[in-house]
Design a protein around this nucleic acid. Structure first.
Lengths: 247, 247
DNA sequence: CGAACAATTGACCGAATTCAATCCGTGTGG
DNA sequence: CCACACGGATTGAATTCGGTCAATTGTTCG
């Protein structure tokens, strides 16, 4: 169940997303203003955070864990339209109704800011607005990248693209050992993968098996993936050889 | 061929996109600053504006006409990732390399701002940055909406969705006469429609014929579309009955 | 008129979906 | 402790939607 919660750190200056989130450009004075209007909420894996159409009186940053943004049609077809990782922003200043459903994909900690005072800060402290613009432009690029995946890639390429993205993110955190096998935890069920990729969960399962059979990936358990040769995975994703990966 | 060009109006205050573009929130002083760093460029239908990877020393607003943003894989598969209509913004402050290929889909007039001074204005005049944030958030919503279309809709629903979007935009310009047939010009070739929808041009053609046969749309010539019953079209698009259309 | 290009239509094929059976790991109650 | 239920995942067989290849029809413009 969702509850007010305390994170493992004391204040903003020790926050793990201090230098990547919407507050990244703030100086200590500005940070103090944010401290006043923030509170933490945590959710366990699988819990809904918000339903599309809900009233929201806050905006928030993901502190730890993974959340998903999804859109659903009346007949139940659903499409994931965003994967929210630590430092990503939820909500839209100036809009009090949620456009998308937000779900905690793993255990999740969010840093929430009360809407009204946050919107005032947007007007008064340019650093918040500047950082939010940068982040939104990055999100837009990511969304457009994903449109190519959804519109033009085969099922196998879609899977490889998703694994590349997650591997890339993980590589950024752990120490990169070039040439060595890269191993990471997959934070999504087969169904969530299918919803992200515009596929059925059966097709996801089949293509995962095929990639395993072909030696592109190896599985230990259901969720732990290891990639012996990152270039091979990127090739399967159909991206340019460089792909912007660690170059 | 692309050339420097004069628009049909004298200065910013007479500009047709004055109140919707990135300059919408500017006062007359700020507008004067923009006047100094702007110049016009025009392109005829079909002309490329920018190739992905090109150096750009400007950002721009679409003044009139339609342009498309596309992404292409090495093997030639291409996906349109944005349709740029009058008032839409091209380029990204702080980035001097084009991420996407931009093509003039119809005759096109752009208002270009030299990059460096524009970026300075972004820092000094909050109105420009504020408006750009709003516009980018809108673009992000549109991109996510489109992810649902690409990932989960059938070919017929995709076509109906595209026609709905164009019809909606046109309805916003012309006087809306509820209950009457809505008629508009389709600013895209079948191939461009296919690239937008993640389909082949043959499938686009077949589904257009099917929608015509079923009385959802009527064609006069190849490009002029009329929609006798907008609700029927929205139903075919698979959207909620309201769909945010004129409500 | 004929060339070039856009669009339509048909026949066939194949990748992904659908429907269905089975497997596997985990947790729960007899 | 084992049986069994449950959800997630895998695998199989049949179907279908959209893609591919190819022929044809329009349409525009030198």
């Amino acid at each position: 169940m969702q509850h007010m919660a305390s994170p493992a750190f004391k204040n903003c200056s020790d926050c793990p997303i201090r230098h990547r989130a919407v507050c990244a450009k703030c100086d200590s004075d500005e940070l103090a203003l944010l401290e006043d209007i923030k509170y933490y909420r945590s959710f366990s894996a699988g819990q809904p955070v918000l339903w599309a159409g809900d009233h929201m009186d806050f905006v928030a940053s993901v502190v730890s864990g993974v959340a998903s943004l999804t859109q659903t049609m009346e007949d139940g077809r659903t499409q994931m339209v965003g994967l929210l990782l630590p430092s990503d922003f939820v909500g839209r200043p100036g809009r009090s109704v949620a456009t998308y459903t937000v779900t905690a994909t793993s255990d999740l900690m969010m840093c929430c800011f009360r809407r009204k005072p946050f919107e005032q800060m947007m007007d008064t402290t340019p650093h918040v607005a500047q950082r939010l613009l940068e982040m939104t432009l990055d999100e837009l690029d990511a969304a457009r990248e994903w449109m190519l995946v959804l519109g033009r890639k085969t099922a196998r390429e879609k899977i490889a693209s998703l694994l590349s993205i997650i591997a890339r993110r993980d590589a950024a955190f752990s120490t990169s050992n070039p040439g060595k096998a890269l191993t990471f935890e997959l934070p999504l069920t087969r169904e969530a993968m299918a919803d992200y990729l515009g596929l059925t969960l059966e097709t996801v399962s089949r293509q995962m098996s095929a990639l395993k059979r072909d030696g592109v990936i190896a599985l230990s358990g259901k969720r732990r993936i290891s990639v012996p040769d990152m270039d091979k995975l990127l090739f399967e994703a159909g991206d340019d050889s460089d792909g912007g990966f660690l170059t």
